[in-house]
Amino acid sequence: MNRLDIQCDLAERMLVQFLRKEAGKFGFRRAVLGLSGGIDSALSAALAARAFGADQVLGVMMPYRTSNPSSEADARTVAAALGIATRKVDISAMVDGYFAQVPTADRMRRGNAMARSRMIVLYDLSVEWKGLVIGTSNKTEILLGYSTQFGDSASALNPLGDLYKHQVFQLARHLGLPECVLEKAPSADLFEGQTDEAEIGHSYRDLDALLFEMVDERRSETELIGRGFAPDFVRNIVRRMALNQYKRMPPVIAKLSERTVNHDFRYLRSWGH
């Protein structure tokens, strides 16, 4: 038993209801999402398939020429298991077309461009499919800012945003997702051999445990260190969360008038719906 364990039946019920209800308010009964072959997008797809019906969900595979071919194979396994529709859009030409003009760009810039190219594809196909883009970012990566702003973090509705990585795995197992996504090491697959844990420098196990106590339980830095978390680890993560706050915010607007969007013009997305 892990302290982060959740009641999967209840989470499934709430998330399915959330997707159906929040999409339905605006007349949407279909969903589009990127299917990477990883566990997050597999779980989002599974929840969307339950909310809208498998045939109403489009899983889009968007490999770049350096992507690991096993990612696409795993994505196809997930789509077949769920019975959702699929589409493949190779983003190599989009990304390479741009970088032909900016050849000096480093690996990070190229990775960001890949993530944003995928966003362009999903938002374009959402028009054709008449479905909302469903997000695949979990709570761990949102808190750490381990995502590309306006790239993989972009979506209309995100059913995973309040689930730590451990909980994503737990719910994915509960929903019977294929072993291939449950077993492999999480990776953004932006370059060869990349894994989340190597790049972030900590295991998801440690990250989830710390974030849960810090964010959900509101424990202070001193208390966390007293409970056995390494001081450097705690400070590094606190710094990282603050540094990436911008990724969790809409663009900042300078206030000039009497009433300003996001400052004192306050309406829910559900305004009137």
Partner: peptide, 13 residues
């Protein structure tokens, strides 16, 4: 609003 779905205790929110 419903919140709190941890496992290990009583079932439900």
């Amino acid at each position: 609003p419903g919140r709190g779905i941890r496992a290990g205790g009583e079932e439900g929110l």
